[in-house]
Amino acid sequence: MQETISAILAKAQPELAALKTRAEFEAAKARYVGPNGEFTALMKQMGTVPKEQRPAIGKLFNEAKAQLQAQLDATVERIAAAEIAAQLGPAVDPTLPSPDAGPGTMHPLTQVREEMCRILRKAGFTVADGPEVETEYYCFDALNTPADHPARAEQDTFYFPESAKFGNIARKVPGEKYLLRTHTSSVQIRTMLKGEPPIRIVSPGRVYRRDTTDATHSANFHQLECLYVDKGVTVRDLKALLDYIFASLLGKDTKTRFRPHYFGYTEPSFEVDLSAKHLPKVNKEWIEIGGCGMVDPSVFEAVGYDPEVWTGYAFGMGLERLAMLVYGIDDIRYFYQNDVRFLKQFA
């Protein structure tokens, strides 16, 4: 018996060591310890062993069984490890670059626009929207820019033929001409006509001028305008908001000043200058950044607000100009070329 046990163990060892797959292992395991296995068959002969030999033989069996089980365990462990190794493949070279696409980038004009909207949101302004194709009423008439005003001249404004039909832009005055808005102030009119004061809106958007494209001009560009309508709004409030905006955007050392100016839809009207000693390119002197003023009573009349009750301010600036200032860009055309070497700089 003892010889037989030793023979089985001696045979199992090289056989198990040669196994490669889990299936081979299961078959081999069945051959030894399965219901019809060699070792199992041997164990069944225990009954024939004389009683006095049983303790010794039993001990032998237990030792052999443990030995065989250890061999089987080691084998299955080895096969599992081999399987994982095969699944993993060779180690990676972590220093190689990823061939996948790099990060997307938001256009600098979008970034400045969104930053301004965030800054203004803190002051209670929400973003209003309006069409880029406008009618003369919203773009001019309601903004105290009468029919013979130079700003309405054909040479400065893109018009559409009289036959043009725009499905989702209604005319206010029958037969008035469609045009491409020259400023986002038309959104102010739409917002005031639709709602009731108090109003605090910012309207960023695309505007159009019939102009030559060069380093500082572009056939379309973007404006950002604010309108505040409430009781008792003053020139000082306007200055306070502009100070807050530019200090938030450009840093605490930024200063603003007003210069008297003229706009049909505000009275008094100002141009706003910036001084930002810490910004390169503009640290020498005041630079003009936008226009502003107190909403002209005639504009309130046009939208049916009582100018004796309501007051307000409005201001606007060019987003391109702002972005050029913030990033130090010196040519407006770069915004519209979309060279990725440009776009990636502001990610």
Binding site: G124, T126, V127, L241, P268, M294
Partner: peptide, 29 residues
């Protein structure tokens, strides 16, 4: 108002205290 301010000096418009949050019930379009 503009005439007085022009001669008085628009540069002298004083800084004002920080703006209080407005209770305008609106959301972005």
């Amino acid at each position: 108002v503009e005439e007085v301010l022009r001669v008085y000096g628009t540069e002298k418009v004083p800084a004002a205290p920080a703006i209080g949050p407005a209770l305008v019930d609106a959301e972005d379009a």
